[in-house]
Computed example of a mutant assay.
Amino acid sequence: MEYTVGFLPSQFPNRERFYVEMTGITYPDVNYHIAREHSARYCLEYVIQGKGHVQCGQTFFQPKAGDVYLLPAGLRHNYRSDPKDPYQKIWVNLMGSLVDSLYQQYNLGYRYHYPDCDAYPLFRAFLSMCEDNRKQPTTVAAKGALMIHEIFEQLSDDIPSGITNDILYARQAKEYIEQHAEEPITVPQIAEHVGLSTSQLNRVFQAEYGVTPHKFYVESRMNLACLLLRNTALQVKEIAEQLQFSDEHYFSASFKRVMGITPKQYRMQVAM
């Protein structure tokens, strides 16, 4: 069961900059489950009680009461209630270039999960503001942008003081790779996105994750291929096309090089 306050894109004249799609409260429900591939929205949520299970890109965590999590746009969002202790949460779904900018400026790509974050009053105030201005979306846009700024600022204060610029660059590169795992991208493209040279990116990424960005990218694509092989009825050729490989044979060879077996063998193995 959910209580929601939502707005249509047409109600926000400058929606490309800032748009509140929806906000509300989700009440405990053991069957609650949301899954989005390459989400178009940021999901910002505070857990009031209970527990949940969340996947963002290739990162998994289990938020509990008092925790906040922020799932950025462009990644896979998959979250559900804990079956034994389903969570109640207050949340907001956001879009727009202003949200992108604040997310980058506050270096929130460092992590998605903020344990024991005293942000409930800010979430409650945001929901109340939207309730009071259902018919005045321009007010929601103006006040909402300031309130999201305040929430993001509080989340940034929760980032450990020992986090260096190198770690932040590595995390930004990892997030970019996860966002573009379905596409053919190069290490120079990743380096340009985070503002480093290729050699600098290789150094900071390997220091943080123990692998090169190229290897992480290849493994991310194969993990996505495994997900499609397990959870869909798509043919191998169709998966190759979705991941933008030049042809099925090149995809199968790449898959075997990483996984040790062909896509067809993998599908048969997980079906047993």
Rank of each mutant, 00 (worst) to 15 (best):
Y3E: 08
P9E: 03
P9D: 01
S10E: 11
N14H: 12
N14F: 07
E16P: 03
Y19P: 01
T23W: 01
G24W: 01
I25Q: 01
T26D: 09
Y27D: 05
V30W: 07
I34G: 00
G52K: 08
H53N: 13
Q55V: 14
C56F: 05
C56W: 02
T59N: 07
T59V: 14
G66A: 02
D67C: 01
Y69W: 12
Y87K: 15
K89F: 12
L94H: 06
S97K: 12
V99G: 01
Y106I: 11
N107V: 07
G109K: 15
Y110K: 02
P115S: 06
A119V: 05
L127A: 04
E131P: 00
T139I: 08
E150Y: 06
E150G: 00
D158K: 15
P160R: 06
S161D: 15
S161G: 11
L168W: 13
K174T: 15
E175C: 12
Y176Q: 14
Q179C: 11
H180L: 08
I185P: 04
T186W: 06
A191S: 10
E192P: 01
V194R: 04
G195M: 04
G195E: 05
L196I: 07
S199L: 13
Q200H: 08
L201P: 09
N202K: 10
V211I: 10
V218L: 11
L227Q: 11
N231I: 02
N231C: 02
L234I: 02
Q235A: 06
A240K: 08
Q242E: 10
Q244C: 13
D247T: 08
E248T: 15
A271K: 10
